[in-house]
């Protein structure tokens, strides 16, 4: 596949605003407010924290890229998705009716964040939601680049996760965090970097702040850091049972 060009990026990490280690890792990028302002109030009230993060990073990246969110296809990647809503439903099964809240039920689907975005922006086009464990960034980027190969134009990639709730908390905690990357088939005037097709192979380890290395989409944050560094790099996109995935990043001319 041909390389894709990054025209905008977004970062959202609740409670990390002004954190110096995050500013150092992601130079020049201020994490967006996870209020999900892109969502109209009625949707924002119902949306999960994950959906609000998705809206925040999508809005930030699209603004930088000059993209219309009502038209751009969306590829969303998340290893655990709406696991917080799913566990909360299990608590509700022990309640008086034995039934979950209808809103929580429809919020528990893996594509809820993509759906809220499409509803908020009136986008009748393509969106999808993927998962591949710690290889989620590689899978998400592959699907997005194959989509660009199929249709051309632009694609918005959002990758995000939040930690599973008790009693399913993982041994290595990580912060809830999301990124977005706008990709294009052509290097427009706003291009920040070119990204190659993901391939199997190792890459140097990138230092990430505050437990972000344990985030299932850690590779996405490493990719964002490489884009912002404006230096050529080979970046690890996570690993699956076969081995690691990596991608080459080159700053735009």
């Amino acid at each position: 596949m041909s390389p894709a060009y990054v025209s905008g990026v977004g970062l959202c990490a609740p409670r990390q605003g002004g954190n110096a280690s995050w500013s150092a890792a992601f130079p020049g990028l201020t994490p967006s407010d996870p209020s999900g302002e892109l969502l109209p109030p009625v949707l924002r009230r119902r949306a999960s924290s994950l959906a609000r993060m998705a809206a925040a990073v999508a809005g930030q990246a699209a603004q930088q890229a000059g993209l219309d969110l009502s038209r751009v296809p969306l590829v969303l990647g998340s290893a655990y998705g709406e696991i917080v809503a799913a566990v909360e439903m299990m608590r509700e099964f022990d309640g008086p009716t034995g039934l979950p809240s209808p809103t929580r039920f429809h919020n528990s689907v893996h594509n809820a964040s993509a759906a809220y975005l499409s509803i908020a922006t009136g986008n009748h086009g393509f969106n999808t939601a993927l998962a591949a464990g710690r290889a989620t960034p590689a899978a998400t980027l592959l699907e997005a680049m194959a989509l660009l190969g199929e249709y051309g134009g632009d694609a918005l990639v959002v990758m995000l996760d939040e930690p599973p709730a008790e009693p399913f908390a993982l041994a290595d905690p990580y912060p809830p965090a999301a990124i977005a990357i706008c990709l294009s088939t052509s290097p427009g005037p706003r291009a920040l970097a070119a990204v190659s097709e993901p391939r199997r192979g190792p890459a140097p380890i990138v230092e990430l702040p505050d437990g972000l290395a344990f985030h299932p989409c850690a590779g996405a944050f490493a990719l964002l850091a490489a884009i912002l560094s404006r230096r050529p790099a080979t970046v690890g996109l996570g690993a699956d049972g076969v081995g690691p995935w990596s991608v080459d990043v080159a700053p735009a001319a």
Partner: peptide
Amino acid sequence: FHGVLDVLRAHTGATGPAYVVS
């Protein structure tokens, strides 16, 4: 979701990209 991917990968021997669409 990656749990079932690991099972299918082991069963089939496939080593190409593997992901769940949900």
